[in-house]
């Protein structure tokens, strides 16, 4: 009985998608602490983390979409568009809360459009969100006439962007990331909607046959990812101090990488919010280490590619060794 109990908790632990990223985190962190002296300091940690909250938000939204069996390639562009909206409206003298509400509404709207395109219209997720990405970037280009939006910054936006702390080391982006992480984490684990998200991504037909409105679930997943992108854009506007038209380029790829490193699967039905966060931490840590080692920043992308491949390999290794361990434990019985 005790043995069975152990087996079951073992099963649970080993089937957790987060296992891979923890291994990777220990690996990268371990290597860094031996090779780079200043790596293990609070200063360094807050430093490299401060630049990663906005990607974390993108990765969390992406994880929700990945769990539902989709993929959202528009979030980089939506983030930039929302940053543009913040800058534009702030320049026109709109109050900060109203600016934020407008940006969030645009994010939710684009997410909703994505959701409608993949469900009601029936386009493949990849194509619909790629098109949406092009639209969002296009709008920002028209708006900015190709030159960066400048001159909207004030003390409040500095705080929103995390350039000025609100209390000691605590910054607004950090708080937003933590609040969103807890909200989404609880949503996935403790609500009906969360269960249905996994269900849709894992076996869409069986979910539909259980009387669940699959369309609504999928649309809502994209809305969540759009809102996350908008939040990320609001932070970005403050952090970057200007909004160039090509601000969003490539961030969706980083978000996908972080989500996959964190144990999400392109096949749907798998993923964790904490995984996405740790996935981004691994990416940020890697960039931090190569910066500390004095490697030219032009090499960054190569390392990110390498980490992504390594992460997927580790996840696969975890899965296959898990099957072996479980087989052995059942054979013993």
């Amino acid at each position: 009985m005790a043995n069975q109990r152990f087996n079951i908790s073992m099963k649970k632990f080993l089937s957790d998608p987060i296992l891979g990223v923890i291994i990777l985190l220990l690996l990268v962190g371990g290597v860094a602490s031996f090779t780079v002296e200043v790596f293990f300091t609070l200063q360094n940690f807050t430093n490299f983390l401060s630049g990663s909250y906005f990607v974390m938000l993108l990765a969390m939204g992406m994880t929700v979409v990945l769990i539902s069996g989709g993929i959202d390639l528009s979030i980089g562009a939506v983030m930039a568009l929302c940053a543009g909206i913040v800058a534009k409206l702030a320049l026109q003298g709109m109050s900060v809360p109203l600016v934020i509400v407008c940006a969030l509404a645009v994010g939710a709207f684009v997410g909703c459009l994505n959701g409608l395109l993949v469900t009601v219209v029936g386009l493949p997720d990849f194509i619909a969100t790629l098109a949406m990405s092009a639209f969002a970037t296009g709008i920002l280009f028209i708006w900015t006439k190709g030159t960066p939006i400048v001159g909207y910054m004030d003390e409040t936006y500095k705080q929103i962007g995390g350039l000025a702390p609100i209390y000691r080391e605590v910054t607004v982006p950090m708080v937003i990331a933590i609040v969103v992480a807890f909200a989404l984490g609880a949503m996935l684990k403790k609500t009906k909607f969360g269960v249905h998200l996994f269900s849709v991504g894992s076996n869409r037909l069986a979910t539909r046959q259980s009387g669940i409105n699959v369309t609504n679930i999928r649309i809502l997943a994209y809305v969540i990812s759009g809102v996350c992108a908008a939040l990320s854009g609001i932070i970005m506007a403050g952090r970057n101090t200007t909004v160039p038209p090509d601000l969003g380029g490539g961030y969706e790829v980083l978000a996908i990488a972080a989500a996959l490193i964190g144990g999400a699967s392109l096949m749907g039905g798998r993923g964790r919010i904490l995984g996405a966060i740790l996935g981004e931490v691994v990416l940020a840590m890697t960039i931090n280490i190569i910066n500390l080692l004095g490697v030219p920043s032009s090499y960054q992308k190569i390392f990110i590619g390498g980490i992504l491949l390594l992460a997927v390999l580790v996840n696969q290794l975890v899965i296959s060794s898990r099957t072996k361990i479980l087989m052995r434990s059942t054979n013993k019985k």
Binding site: T191, K192, F198, N203, A206, Q209, I212, G269
Partner: peptide, 30 residues
């Protein structure tokens, strides 16, 4: 299989008719 592989036994059994607990006037928690 017409079960959902990613969900637990309990979640599969109650899929589509989950029991909800009321907290702070909101009916969202399982």
């Amino acid at each position: 299989l017409s079960l959902v592989p990613a969900l637990t036994t309990l979640e599969n059994i109650f899929l589509g008719r989950e029991l909800i607990i009321e907290r702070a006037g909101m009916k969202v928690l399982l």
